[in-house]
Amino acid sequence: MELLRDWLFDYTLRNVALGSALLGVVSGALGCFAVLRRQGLLGDVLAHAALPGICIAYLLTNAKTPIVLLLGAAAAGWVAALLMMQIVRHTRIGEDGALGIVLSTFFAFGIVLLTFITKRGDADHSGLDAFLFGQAAALVEEDVVTMAVLGGFALLAVALFYKEFKLLAFDAPFAASLGFDTNALGVLLTSLIVIAVVIGLQTVGVVLMAALLVGPAVAARQWTSRLSAMIVLSALFGALAGLIGTLISVSDESLPTGPMIILSLTGIVLLSLCLAPERGLVWDAMRRALQRRMIKAED
């Protein structure tokens, strides 16, 4: 009962819970397409690559307004995705090599800029390193509103291009043969994932963002084989992980929010893998044990 009262009336808690749940919904929905296109680690790369963008945006404007920093992050994420595509398409370096290079060297450049800004003696720099591990507890109403607007835009785009994205995820050559510009659709989808990543950076930080795109989608996939149901479930799982993580970290001051969200999400993934009807590993093991017994009985 006390918890419920806190929920409704505590300003900070409401912002953190709302922000985390929102992030879960957006990254859960978009993560489905990333996972189905076997680009699960794209979010990881975009999150790391955003760091230099954030720092450059700050250096150029000297402002810490969320929208300016997020624009910088989006621009850097875009450049990273483009570079990655060029490496994969035109050289013999594999996709994983391209991911690894772009992720680590963009991040390294971001660290150079971050330490440069810190040592320049700016009293006002403190907000930037929050992006490394995220600072869900510091979310204010302005942040939540920004997240809601950007996330709402991304979800709307998914709804508008649902059929095209579906085709792209399951049979890209067929989509191309029907006359869809698969390149443009891929770029659009990547841009939407950039939005999800960018709103996630403030909450869970660079490293843990990868899990928020992959986890809900993988969990949802176990329960259904329909894309529409998978997206809805994935968004729900994302939101659930956000809420559970927030509540746990509120109950104990020393537990950081971002990691708690990810660990809750991991729990949901494991439960889904084991217990989902039909695909659950537990049922699989039971079926096999039953068969073994039947074969023995026949012998």
């Binding site: 076997r38 899990a211 992959v214 660990l263």
Partner: peptide
């Protein structure tokens, strides 16, 4: 999928 497995395991360990 292979890359999704990586994306689930290492953030959990890091968290």
């Amino acid at each position: 999928g292979g890359e999704s497995a990586i994306g689930i395991v290492f953030p959990a360990m890091f968290a």
